[in-house]
């Protein structure tokens, strides 16, 4: 067994505000427990910085259990760090070796401007969802659970797409900063389910238009998004988005 603590050099991106210049700062952090999560390690760093009277490193987080999609760090050039199917908050420090230098950067994409240090503004995703990533239902009593039948295999595919937590790692990892995996996950999920049918063609056209308007790149089918996605959303959903888009262009009534 290797020892239970690590001595690390952290190269952290520091940026005082959206329009301020940014740069890397090096911090030495000794005695990091291998049982910590990556975010707990940053908490320890921040406690040290605060104790020394320095400004703590700003980073996004909320649930710390891989479901909210808030944590968003480029760790040694990999979105959410080296593991597949894992968010930054689920990443353990035992994945690193003592003496290592860890480079930590924010997501880099023009539609995701840096708010401060490692925090980026992902409102662009919210606006894409607002442009079609929903179903319209009447309020009132919840409908009976089995009144709208959905075959099991469709449920499975829709659920695989619905696993997207909106973290933005796909954009961060893509060499084109394309949001196709995120957009396709929602388009796919709702195009498969009966509840999504009324808005089906308007949804795909609206969401693609908003995605372009936000300034995301175009997809070159490199599949880096799929490899980086903590929810393991597959590029098969991008193919479905392309099919939905073609169908909407040619067959939609309006």
């Amino acid at each position: 067994m290797s020892s239970d603590t690590l001595n690390l050099t952290l190269r952290v991106w520091r940026q005082a505000g959206p329009d301020k210049p940014g740069g890397f700062c090096d911090y030495q952090l000794d005695g990091v427990s291998t049982h910590m999560s990556f975010l707990e390690m940053l908490d320890v760093l921040n406690e040290k910085l605060i104790a020394a009277g320095d400004e703590p490193v700003a980073f996004d987080h909320d649930c710390r259990e891989g479901i909210c999609g808030m944590c968003s760090l480029m760790i040694n050039g990999q979105a959410h760090g080296p593991d597949r199917g894992t968010t930054t908050c689920q990443l353990h420090m035992r994945r690193f070796a003592s003496g290592e230098t860890i480079t930590i950067e924010p997501w880099r994409a023009t539609p995701f401007p840096v708010v401060r240090d490692l925090v980026v503004n992902r409102s662009a995703f919210d606006r894409i969802i607002q442009s079609g990533g929903f179903v319209s239902v009447n309020t009132g009593n919840a409908p009976d659970g089995n009144s709208v039948p959905v075959p099991g295999n469709r449920q499975e595919v829709a659920m695989d797409a619905a696993a997207c937590i909106g973290c933005g790692a796909c954009v961060a990892a893509c060499k084109n900063a394309s949001a196709m995996l995120f957009v396709s996950a929602k388009v796919s999920q709702l195009s498969i389910l009966p509840q999504g049918q009324p808005e089906r063609s308007a949804r795909v056209l609206g969401m693609v238009a908003q995605m372009d308007k936000e300034g995301f790149g175009s997809c070159t089918n490199t599949s880096e998004c799929e490899a980086a996605c903590p929810a393991e959303v597959s590029v098969s959903h991008i193919a479905r988005l392309n099919r939905e888009y073609m169908k909407a262009l040619v067959f939609a009534d309006r």
Binding site: G77, K175, A177, T220, E224
Partner: peptide
């Protein structure tokens, strides 16, 4: 695509 990335990463690796 280039405009969409904005500034480059200091370090970038594939998975």
């Amino acid at each position: 695509n280039r405009t969409a990335r904005g500034s480059a990463y200091a370090m970038k690796q594939t998975k």
